[in-house]
Structure formats: C-alpha cells, structure tokens
Amino acid sequence: MAGASTDLAGLAERLRAHPSIRSKLGIGQAVAGLGLSAGAPGRPGDDAAALANGAGWDLLAGEGFIPGFVEENPWFAGWCGVMVNLSDIAAMGGRATAILDQIWAPSAAAARPLMDGLRDAAAAYGVPLVGGHTNFGAPALGLAVSVLGKAERLITSFDARPGDLLIAAIDPRGAYVNFDNFCAALEAPPERLRGDLAILPDLAAAGLVRAGKDISQGGIIGTALMLAECSGVGIEIDLAALTPPRGIAPERWLRSFPSFGFLLSVAPEAANAVCARFAARGIDAAAIGRVLPGSAVTLTDGEDRALFWDHAATPYLDLGVPHA
C-alpha cells in the first residue's frame, strides 16, 4: 500500500527505466524480424501459442534464460524452466501435458544441477519430462525449456474490456531468491502446487475471467502494460490496493516476478467469485485497478495520478493492435 507522500511521477519514471521493464521491448523487434503480428497463427503476445485442434486448443510455451541467471544458481534455473512455462500454460486456461528441455554445458557434471532442478520441478508439478536437446561440449551453461498443454476454453491477453476490474492473484508465502524473483514454490507440497495452477483452467471453464496474463519479468506493472496493449485498452493501478508481503516496498513489488502470480481482467459482477477461488487456497487475490478506454497505463494514489506508459504513443510489444 502507498503512503500519502508517494511521489507517483518519480515512481513511474523509475519503473519505466528499470531493466526488467525495458527488456520486454525486444519482443517487438523479434516479432518484426519474424514478420509476425497479433493476427499471426498462435497469436504472438499471449503467454502461450494457442492452436485450435477441433475439440479445444493445443498450447505451446517456451522460455530461454539469460546466462547470468543460469550460472548463479543452476538448480533454481532448472526449476524455473519448468515453473514459469507451467504458469504460461495455466494463464491461457490450460493444463500442461509435457516438458521438453534444451541444455548446453561444458560437461555432464556441470549440467547436473541444472538437470536436477528440471527433474525436481517436473516431479513436483506432475508433468513429465519427455526429452529435448543436450550439448555437453558448450563453453558455458545454457537453458531453454518448452511446455505443451491443452485447453478447453482460453484465457487470452486480447479480451480485456473497459469496465473490467484488474485482479492480481499472487501467492505471498515466499521470499526473494535472486534479482526480483519472489518464489513461493520451493517449500510448497506438490499437491498444493498442482492444485493452485488448476484454478486457472477451472476459472476459464466457468467463464469467470475475460482476459489475463501471468505476472512475468517486469512484474505487475510490466504485465499490466502488456495486457493493456494486447487488448487495446488502458489500465489504472491503485497503489493503495496493493498488498505486498511484509517488508517489501510497493515499488519493488510492482516489478517483482512471483512464482505464482496472475493479472486477470474480470467483469465486476464476477470479481468476488474469482477472488474466492484463490482465497480458498491461501492465495492473495484482490482488485488493484480497472480497465479503461484508451492506451494509458497509469498509477493512482488517492487523487494523485501519474502516467507510466502510453502504448499508443510508444508501443511496448508493437503488435499492431487497435485501441478501444
């Protein structure tokens, strides 16, 4: 929660300049380089590619990791390779079915902690590792992970509507591991990890969520910007509605990458039912803002307002989506 003396303009400026926020600007360059747009098959901009299969949707998600992250804690990098991809599948309203890994290392011994992390996470979440690619002649550790899944009904990044409430659902039972990575998964029992992810496809099946994304690199604020741009809307985030875990400043919480965290665009009449699903499993869920017409993502605190980003003036993902 914010205090009366919060310098919103300064906060917005610092967040806008933070490396975790700026890093997502590369998505637009990659999309352009590949000749893609939001209308391409798989719909770039979503958390996973979704391909219709006649009975629902096949989902494909992938994640590559920066070398410094892998080198600092190879076991945790392996765990995260599974965890973040499973969150992407869940964010789409899906359930993961298989994991593929791509590992580079100077030797099998050097790769062991990385592989242990992958194996341990796959076992904890109950999703099988089915193979991939391995190179034990590389000069340094490297990791990429892909996950396959299925959904009967999608949650996408493209369907938020003005008038919706923005709900943040985050597991607060964790701590920072490195950088701004807030992990609540390492001590959780497997049945809790699996049941928590199942909330999302259950919400999708019930038709309670209009749109959503998992909170990834860039945190709440960066993810809100991506959701806003994909849906062609504006989003307002109320700092007074944020509830960071004890001892964590709102500024850091806004840019943190939680192991379990989702932003959901929900019709006001469905908000209580959505929040109750998470609360029943000990996960904090509350409306932290609202979806508005336009293209501005703003921070508010009482009567004070500050522009964080206008995605029409300065595209973030640059997918060519029209604005509401």
Rank of each mutant, 00 (worst) to 15 (best):
M1L: 13
A2I: 05
A2C: 12
D7W: 00
A9F: 02
R14I: 06
L15E: 03
A17L: 12
V31F: 08
G35K: 08
S37E: 07
A40H: 10
R43L: 12
R43C: 12
G45D: 07
A50S: 14
A55D: 13
A55S: 15
W57R: 00
L60S: 09
A61P: 02
F65E: 12
I66H: 11
W79K: 10
M83H: 11
N85F: 05
L86C: 07
A90K: 04
M92K: 01
R95E: 07
I103Y: 03
W104D: 14
A105D: 07
A110E: 15
A111P: 10
R112L: 13
L114K: 13
G117H: 05
L118V: 09
A122R: 06
A124Y: 01
Y125E: 14
L129H: 03
H133S: 14
N135H: 13
P139F: 03
G142L: 08
G142H: 10
L148V: 02
A151H: 04
R153M: 00
I155C: 04
G163I: 03
A168E: 14
I170Q: 10
D171M: 13
D171K: 04
Y176W: 10
V177S: 12
V177D: 09
F182Q: 07
E191R: 14
E191C: 11
D196P: 02
A198W: 01
I199E: 00
A205T: 00
A206E: 00
G207W: 02
G207F: 03
L208G: 00
V209A: 03
R210I: 01
A211Y: 01
A211P: 00
A211K: 01
G212D: 02
K213H: 13
I215H: 07
Q217V: 15
A224D: 11
E229K: 12
S231N: 01
D238N: 12
A240V: 08
L242H: 03
R246C: 05
A249M: 11
P250V: 07
R252Q: 10
W253R: 05
W253C: 11
S256F: 07
F257Y: 09
P258A: 13
G261C: 11
F262N: 01
L264Y: 04
E269Q: 12
A276R: 15
R277D: 03
I283E: 01
D284H: 15
A296M: 10
V297P: 07
T298Y: 04
T300E: 02
F308S: 08
W309Q: 06
P315M: 14
P315V: 11
Y316N: 07
D318A: 15
D318P: 06
P322I: 10
P322Q: 11
